[in-house]
Every structure is written in C-alpha cells, then in structure tokens.
C-alpha cells in the first residue's frame, strides 16, 4: 500500500510542477523584465533573456528542468545564478525549525486542552477555552503577530521583534528569537486540533463500551484517557498532520512580519521575479511535504486503528 501511495505521490508532484510552470508562464512579464524593472529596454531584456536561457521555447525549458530534477539536480536560479539546492537548503532548515518548535508547543497543548475540554464538557472552562482558541484562529495571523510584538517586544521588552537568525546563531539564541513567531503559529493552529480532539472524544463517549465502563464505576478521566482516546486517535492524527503541513507551507505572513528567513519568503520573491526554477523547487518541496505527511497520517491512523485496513 505504501509503495502504491508513494507512486501516486510522485504523479501528484509531476502534475504540480506542470501546473506551477504553466501558471508562472501565464503571468505577465518574465524574469528579465522583472529584474530590470523600470530600466528595461527591449535590447537589455533580450540580452538578459539570452543569458538566462529564456529565449528557448517553454516546453524545452520545462523538459530540461524536469530532466535535471530526475537526476536530483535542482538547477540554478535564473535571477542570480546560485545553486538552488544551496539556496533552499538553509531556508528549508529554518522553516522546519520554526515548524518543529511551533509543533512541540501546540500539539501537546491542543491535546491537553481538548481532553480537558471533553472531560469538563459544557463547563466554564470548556467554554472559555473554546472562545479563546476560536478567537485566535479567527484573527488574521499578522494581527495576532503584531499584538504579540506590541505586548512582549515593544512594551515588555522580553523578546525580540525580529526573528533574525543566521548560520552562526546558537541553538539557544535561535529558540529565544523564535518564541514570538512560534507563539503566533501556536495560537493559529491550536484551535483546530483542540476542537477535533474534543469532538472525537465526545463522539465516542456515547458508545456502548464507554457506557459499560461508566457502569463499572470508573472515573471519568480514566475512561477518557484509557478508553476513549485510543479510539479517537485516527481523526485527531489526521488533523494534527494537516496542521503540521500548514506550519511548514503556510507561514509566509509570519515569516514576513518577524523577518524570518524561511522558505515562504523565498517563494514569494521568486514568483515576483518569475524565477521559475526556484518556484518549481519550492512547490515540489511543499507538495512533497503534503504528500508525505498525509501518508504518515494514514499510516498512523492504521497503526492506532487496524480496522481501517479493511474498509467495509
């Protein structure tokens, strides 16, 4: 099954690359025009196009890129001639670091909040947690980010407003600088996971085996953690994984506000300058992240609930 899914995943990646290529081609202007901006003249644009290999017809460029890609060669950026693997490597590591940090905070937090919310269903605690998390997910990310900056960076001065990390930044320094962006992301993703945990558990609480446990006189917390939660994993894991994918691919705005050198900023810049190889490479990485994480979600669901292997 895994092999089949991986095969389908590769097909998806191919389709994504083709769609992205055609999409960027369809945008007005090309890399030469974008780089020269207002100072473009037909002559200089033509010269730059020749240097960048943009004078070749689109299909030739696509297959040239695809050929390189199949051999593991991402190619070079047409805008500044840098190796794309080198360009993306550091950025992707940064993005993963921030996603990991946000995940380490948000996933346990969401689970605990969700379980407690199920445990004390309809109590004041349940309602207030719901209100807080739902409001934080409802505000746009940049707004949440600015509020956090205002409180913790400008007024209190506890954390820096720039998550300005470089290769020489120590791990501890890096964690410190990423506190505010990670907190922003946490606020944005926690509601989804928390609500799903709560709903999945409450759903199960109506089933006969839980009633049986109740009748045996078990405590509510024991019922939820030992009996309900194991069966609730499948939907929860799915939601967690989707949110993890979001943490990796959807952080452009947070990166811009906190000036964090991640992959999101790179893809925005590259689209602006029509740097197709870089856009392609980023999209492939993003698409691959989605494919792999979804696969992981399915595998985890099956591990926690083997019945899913044999759908009725």
């Amino acid at each position: 099954m895994v092999a089949q899914r991986l095969g389908l995943g590769l097909l998806t990646l191919f389709a994504v690359s083709l769609i992205i290529f055609l999409g960027v081609e369809a945008l007005p202007g090309n890399a030469a025009e974008a780089i020269l901006g207002q100072s473009a003249t037909p002559e200089t644009v033509a010269a730059l196009e020749r240097q960048m290999g943009l004078d070749l017809p689109p299909h030739e460029r696509y297959f040239k890129w695809l050929g390189g890609m199949l051999q593991g060669d991402f190619g070079v950026s047409i805008a500044n001639g840098r190796e794309i693997s080198e360009l993306i490597g550091v950025r992707f590591a940064n993005t993963l670091f921030l996603a990991l940090m946000a995940a380490l905070i948000s996933v346990p937090l969401a689970l605990v909040l969700g379980i407690l919310a199920a445990l004390y269903r309809n109590s004041i605690y349940d309602r207030s947690v719901n209100i807080v998390t739902l409001s934080s997910i409802s505000f746009p990310e940049f707004f949440v980010a600015y509020i956090l900056i205002l409180i913790f960076a400008v007024t209190a001065g506890w954390f820096p407003s720039l998550a300005n990390v470089g290769p020489e930044t120590t791990l501890w320094e890096r964690v410190y600088r990423c506190v505010l962006p990670a907190a922003t992301l946490t606020l944005v993703v926690v509601a989804h996971m928390m609500r799903m945990t709560r709903a999945a558990i409450i759903n199960l609480l109506a089933s006969p085996y839980i009633e049986m446990a109740n009748l045996k006189g078990m405590s509510r917390s024991r019922i939820i953690v030992h009996h309900a939660l194991p069966n609730a994993w499948a939907p929860v894991v799915n939601v967690i994984v989707i949110n993890l994918a979001y943490l990796i691919v959807g952080v452009v705005i947070v990166e811009v506000v906190f000036v964090y050198p991640g992959l999101g900023q790179l893809i925005v810049d590259s689209v602006r300058t029509r740097d197709i190889p870089v856009v392609q490479a980023c999209s492939i990485i993003f698409a691959a992240t989605y494919v792999l994480l979804n696969l992981t979600a399915d595998i985890l669901s099956i591990v926690t609930n083997p019945r899913l292997l044999h759908p009725r």
Binding site: I149, G157, P160, S161, L162, V256, V257, V259, Q265
Partner: peptide, 18 residues
C-alpha cells in the same frame, strides 16, 4: 537586514534591534 514589512521595520527600530 532585509525587513520588507514597514511595521516590522518600525518595531525593530523602536525596540532597538536596528
């Protein structure tokens, strides 16, 4: 440092980071 967002630039100056 490249700080594309003008609010982020203003914050960074206000907090003394730049």
């Amino acid at each position: 440092i490249v700080i594309a967002d003008v609010a982020a630039r203003t914050n960074a100056l206000s907090t003394g980071e730049i």
